[in-house]
């Protein structure tokens, strides 16, 4: 379990409505600091600049999907140990298992409850080594 409480989160998501709901949920309900990235192609640079403690990735995005971005982060030296949580509406259990095997910290299925999302993330955070 990491020593500090979870605070800085970066969320890569193309749907603007969901961006807003997640921002409100994490900021208002969870009291966290949130950076939203709409374009997955720009995600690496924005994550590097924001220095989050945890990254949330949408699964299906135009240009580059969540798993592809995750693989790229794993291949990037300074981002490879960053905890990643997937938010997805369609992944099969096998896909999720595969992501876990690749090192994803957790998965949250859509639709999620904005009331509970901060707690779900804190639970994943607490389970980290």
């Amino acid at each position: 379990m990491p020593a500090n409480a979870l605070n800085r989160i970066c969320y890569v998501e193309d749907d603007e409505d969901i961006q807003r709901i997640v921002r409100m949920s994490l900021e208002r309900v969870g009291g966290m600091t949130v950076e939203i990235v709409g374009d997955p192609m720009a995600a690496i640079a924005r994550i590097r600049a924001f220095k989050p403690e945890l990254v949330m990735l949408d699964w299906m995005m135009p240009g580059m999907d969540g798993p592809a971005l995750f693989r790229e982060m794993r291949a990037t030296g300074d981002l490879k140990d960053l905890p990643v949580v997937f938010i997805t509406a369609k992944a099969s259990q096998r896909d999720l298992d595969e992501l876990r095997a690749m090192g994803a910290a957790g998965t949250i299925s859509k639709p999620f409850s904005p009331k509970e999302l901060p707690d779900q993330l804190r639970a994943i955070w607490a389970a980290l080594p």
Binding site: D15, D17, I21, M24, A89, K90, K110, F112, K115
Partner: peptide, 24 residues
Amino acid sequence: LSHELRTPLTSIIGSLQLINSGVL
């Protein structure tokens, strides 16, 4: 059905939950 219907529902239910929870 799974993806395209759930994504807007995520927004709808999520928004309403935030409103109804009183955090706003």
